[in-house]
Design a protein around this nucleic acid. Structure first.
Length: 357
DNA sequence: TCCGCTGACACGTTTGAAGCGT
DNA sequence: AACGCTTCAAACGTGTCAGCGG
């Protein structure tokens, strides 16, 4: 109902959250290749709170989690130094965009064809990532009749802690390989006999043995027995970043105490740019080509949410450099909600620095 | 020597055109 | 002629592996 519509009422929930959590409990890895590799699990969300007859554009970008690169050593990820300079960040627009709100709300919005690459010269619109770096996807919804007349003031951004992943050119953690083989239909050929040497390389073709599809729900049971290999991070911030995501898993959401800076046994959390900006601007801007800003650790303020927020999620925000904004934490179910108000806000975030529409 | 990256490979899934029947 | 179903091959997507290079 447009009469009851409120810009801040837009909500997103993560699709395939069980699957994401299963991978996250082990330490999600995503393969990146020169020609582009799809994500698995792929990104998908359910959207609500849109105006049914207003047009929206839904987009996704992938943001560095922290300022470090990592290496896989002794069954765990360790910090290997400062992050390499990030290539131009690209924003991937959902192919249905623009579409009316009722279209986005009637079914999950997924990005199965999104591909990741490490080829900075890629011309196919794939999202460019660096191997051995941590990332997380960010979803955006903005009211617009077409991609060039976006109503920036209405833009909302969401991210989900369990979608944090490590970009790799080859799998490091065999647990991830097993999970993917078990649940990705395209990897069925590797299911039998483990992940290694169950078939002869360059052997003659044998008759295909078809197997029944695995149900997605099968993963829930297997995930319970999987424990994520802990970090032995040498740098506190890297631990914090991971602790942030881990904490979200324990109860399915972030707890206020976990984010309380002064609490004993507190995990000092540095959420990955999980911010909300208030919006008072309705000016329209055209996406500008700007160089990607390497991830910076920006001071932020943890805002205790009100008692009325019953879903237990935590929203924190950090101010833009000019501190010219005031924000009310807006809790999204199991997600984080961002809203931008100005070009300056945009410049602090890689969204639209290079778009792939 | 170590470790990350690349391309070839084998195999399963998906897609769409072609053929056929109603 | 239109529609629906089946078949089949090509395209696509996957993880593994060996080799390369920094």
């Amino acid at each position: 109902m447009s009469s009851s519509y409120q810009p801040g009422g837009i909500k997103m929930t993560l699709e395939n959250a069980h699957l994401w959590q299963s991978f996250h409990s082990v330490g999600t890895e995503m393969i990146i290749t020169k020609h582009g590799r799809r994500m698995f699990p792929h990104c998908g969300v359910r959207v609500s709170g849109l105006q049914p007859f207003a047009n929206y554009v839904v987009m996704l970008d992938i943001i560095p989690l922290d300022g470090f690169k990592y290496k896989w050593k002794k069954e765990q990820w360790e910090v290997a130094g400062l992050a390499d300079p990030h290539p131009p960040c690209r924003t991937y627009m959902h192919p249905d965009s623009p579409a009316p709100g009722r279209h986005w709300m009637k079914q999950p919005v997924s990005f199965p064809k999104l591909k990741l690459t490490n080829n900075t010269l890629n011309q196919h619109g794939h999202i460019i990532l660096l191997s051995m770096h941590h990332y997380y996807p960010r979803f955006h919804v903005v009211q617009a009749d077409n991609p060039y007349t976006l109503c920036w003031g209405s833009l909302r951004s969401f991210s989900f802690p369990e979608t944090v992943f490590t970009a790799v050119t080859a799998y490091q953690n065999p647990k991830i390989t097993k999970l993917k083989i078990d649940h990705n239909p395209f990897a069925k050929g590797f299911r039998e006999g483990g992940t290694h040497s169950h078939r002869k390389r360059r052997s003659n073709k044998s008759s295909p043995a078809k197997r029944p599809k695995l149900e997605r729900d099968d993963l829930s049971s297997s995930s319970q027995s999987l424990q994520r290999t802990p970090y032995t991070s040498q740098l506190a911030q890297a631990e914090e970043s991971w602790a942030f995501t881990q904490q979200s898993l324990k109860g399915g959401h972030l707890s206020p105490s976990a984010l309380e800076p002064d609490s004993t046994e507190c995990i000092k959390v540095e959420p990955p740019v999980l911010t909300e900006y208030s919006s008072s601007s309705d000016e329209q801007m055209v996406p500008a080509s700007m160089p990607h800003q390497p991830y910076r650790s920006i001071e932020y303020v943890v805002v205790p949410y009100s008692q009325s927020d019953t879903d237990g999620a935590q929203t924190s925000f950090h101010p833009p450099p000019d501190s010219l904004f005031a924000a009310e934490p807006c809790i999204q179910q199991r997600g984080y909600n961002h809203q931008y108000s100005s070009t300056a806000d945009w410049s602090q975030n890689p969204v639209f620095s290079y778009s792939t529409w």
